[in-house]
Simulated scan of single mutants.
Amino acid sequence: MMSSVKVECVVKESALIGEGPVWEESEQTLLFVDIVGQKIHRWSPTTNQIQSVETGHMVGFAVPRRSGGYVAGVGRSIVAVDWSAQTMTSLAEVDEDKPTNRLNDGKVDPIGRLLAGTMGMMESPAVFQKQQGSLFSLTSDLTVTRHLSQVDISNGMDWSLDQKTFFYIDSLCLTVDAFDHEPETGELSNRRVVYRLQEGEGLPDGMTADADGRLWVACFNGGRVINIDPSTGVRLQTVSLPVMKTTSCCFGGPDYADLYVTSARLGLSEEELRQQPLAGATFRVTGLGVKGRPSNSFSG
């Protein structure tokens, strides 16, 4: 890690499983969720204040919506969130035939289409029903399309600068994969591995791409975020965090030069919690020498 890199805890409020950070340029706030805590949080670096909405069910992601408010994955429902009214309205249901499934990570592509994945029920801490999940898209007219099935834990995703490649993580595969991506239709093809996690790196979880098209992957149980060049499959940099269960990341702040990283504390023993007092907190990494890209908003 470069010597100028600085890691600081910015949201000490501990999340059971903090996930899916998104920087809102218009509000200058960080949006993220606590999956098991069943809350969507909005944190302002300017005021250091957190606002929250309770979702009533596990929430996998929340993303801005062009028409206002947010879209979130709550249980198996993709819902519209009215922040001021603290209400949610269902837009679509997925995995109707798998009532114990839930939505996990989600992200909006450059044309405003929402990609959202599901996963099976957790049978015990860190033990999941395998190959129960799928990857769906939701278009502006609320058409749902299934792109992948037999997914273990649908997780991080992002797109190349030219939108012709879609990067995707199914966590238990221990790989970051790429697909050929047709921007107009969202069609995915030609799946291949661009990076396989090494011993000790943990499970690949949430992911974001920077302005140079390189990938930053949060490594669950690895205590780090790794920077990958998808064109060569080479790990360029490792950012170590003071917590093991790093869950996701995004760029934000002035000029998108800060990397925000979420984490989890669910499943840690009392001894592990003593060793990692910041488990479940959200961190800001500065001095990386790279910039991110603005997040996309759902067009529906």
Score class of each variant (00 low, 15 high):
S269M: 15
L188I: 00
K130G: 13
E19K: 07
L148C: 08
A80Y: 03
W216G: 09
Q198G: 03
K107D: 08
V10E: 02
N227M: 10
F128M: 07
Q129M: 04
T232C: 06
G253W: 08
C249Q: 15
S154M: 13
P183E: 00
A178Q: 06
L103Y: 11
V59Y: 09
T89M: 08
V63E: 05
V53D: 03
E13M: 10
L31Y: 08
S240L: 08
C173Q: 15
L161I: 15
L203P: 09
M119I: 00
G120L: 02
R293Y: 02
M119Y: 00
T87A: 11
G69L: 06
V74L: 03
V11I: 04
I35E: 12
M88E: 04
G300N: 08
A178N: 01
E182Q: 11
F136W: 01
V59T: 07
G133F: 03
T29E: 00
Q86R: 04
N104R: 03
G287W: 07
Q86L: 02
G37W: 14
G267H: 02
M1I: 08
L103F: 11
V239C: 10
I78Q: 05
E272K: 14
G117E: 10
T246D: 02
S134P: 13
T139N: 13
D34S: 05
E54Y: 14
R65D: 11
P21R: 01
S84C: 05
T262R: 01
S140K: 07
